[in-house]
Amino acid sequence: MEIRLVRQEEMQEAAELADSIFRDSEQISMAQGFPNLFSSVYSESLGAFDKGRLVSFMGLLPGAVRIGSAQLYTYSLGSVCTHTDSRGKGVAGDLFAAVRERVKKAGASLLLVSGTRSLYTRAGCRPFGLIRQYTLSREHAASLKEVSGGSYTVRPYRRGDLTAMHKLAAARVGAYEQSIWDLGLLIEARAYGSCVKLRHQTYIAEKNGVPAAFLVAALPEEGLGQVREGIRPQGAPIMMEWAGEAGGLAAMLAAVVEENQLKQFFVPIAVHEQDVHDLLGFLPVQEQRNMGTVLISDSRLLLEQLRPYLNERSTDHSLGERLSCEPAAEDGVTLQLPGLPGLELTGDEWTSLVFDRSEMPQHASDQWREALGEVFPLPFPHTAGLNYI
């Protein structure tokens, strides 16, 4: 069995394998829904080849997540599939080991995995992050308009809006890095939407004639059947991405449910977006994990890449220079600060501290709680937005 990068001329074979697992006759090809993942120019997707035949594929795409003024280099893993006649032979395990090794060598601190299978959790991938998902309907439209402040005009996207949209997206405190071109490509490709037979529709909220917010909604495709396996309720309309003023978001949400006569529309909001939670607090809400799992590939590198954010958020603006770590048992770390005893955390505790909650482990001293509570959890974006892999 040969495990290596998938070449461009082999990407069609990879897409056909993925389509046979994840698509039906009504859906576009995985290569169309995930164009970067099935391109050797952008991706570092790996395959297992048996006598020249691709028998297993793992789509691997490098990227970056901006946290304040810091930039975390990441990889996203998805479209994982194996031919039925090659399953149960350890091929996927060997391939995932190669993925982890590649990520580590590339200088990425995080691997974001779209799945939660034991294949990933056995290797240290963990559930992470918290999302508050609101459920709204046409009955909420009037209240949404009221909390928006009434100063926004909502209209559909038109050519020429991408520059303003990019400016709004770049102002987010925690988000995937997206160029102007990325925004247009990802909206057109509809990676998540194509998996659950939803189309994209983009809205702009203007204030005094200037774009103040945008929203990308994934809405039902008329005449299409159910998906074979839905990640969420099958075909349920959902907000994919937004940026800008919270009031503009409320105004656009009212327009989405009214214009499309939706009985139900899901609105996932990361927990750090408090201005939105303040506005939408009257809606039904459910707290849930971010989609998929995360592997902290290199904890020391993670802290190094986070240094600008740690400095800007800490009271003395020097935590990024002072905080360090060493590997510990159970995929954990021992955090170190001058003048304090080391704080040993298991892998679960470390991941939870970074992504999930502001509460410290019970054995953390007051000094550790004060120092870490200023910077963790990170304001991490929703992983099932436009950059879903």
Rank of each mutant, 00 (worst) to 15 (best):
V227M: 05
C195P: 06
L279P: 03
C195M: 15
M11S: 01
D24H: 11
E245Y: 13
H166S: 15
I131E: 09
E16K: 02
R7V: 06
Q133K: 15
S118V: 10
A142N: 12
P381Y: 10
T116G: 10
L111S: 07
E13M: 14
L249P: 07
G248K: 02
A217T: 03
A15W: 00
E304Y: 09
Y309G: 01
Q305H: 08
V6P: 10
E370V: 10
T315S: 14
Y388D: 03
L130N: 14
A328P: 00
C81N: 05
Y309P: 01
G107P: 05
E374M: 07
L301V: 00
A171G: 13
S297N: 15
T82I: 04
T116Y: 08
L224I: 13
R155S: 00
G248L: 04
L61D: 11
G33S: 12
D85N: 09
A254Q: 00
M252F: 02
A243L: 04
A364I: 08
C81G: 02
T346W: 01
T346E: 00
P361H: 04
S148T: 13
E13L: 03
I187Y: 06
D24A: 10
R357I: 04
E101M: 13
G235M: 09
Y120T: 02
V257N: 01
R117V: 04
L262I: 01
E359C: 11
L319E: 02
P377M: 06
R138M: 08
F214K: 05
T84A: 15
A142K: 14
F380W: 14
M360D: 03
L279K: 13
A371M: 12
E139Y: 02
L215S: 03
A217K: 02
K167M: 07
L185Q: 14
F376C: 03
L46R: 07
K105L: 14
L136M: 08
G281L: 03
E13I: 03
T163E: 15
R155T: 09
E259V: 05
L302K: 04
A191W: 03
F22I: 05
L215P: 12
G88F: 01
S40E: 08
E273R: 14
K104R: 13
A106P: 06
P233S: 13
L340F: 12
Q274V: 08
A169W: 02
L198E: 00
H363T: 06
K51Y: 10
Q226M: 03
K51F: 09
I187S: 06
I231Y: 06
G247S: 09
L119S: 09
H382Y: 14
G342N: 06
Y120I: 04
D24F: 02
L119E: 07
N290H: 13
D348W: 11
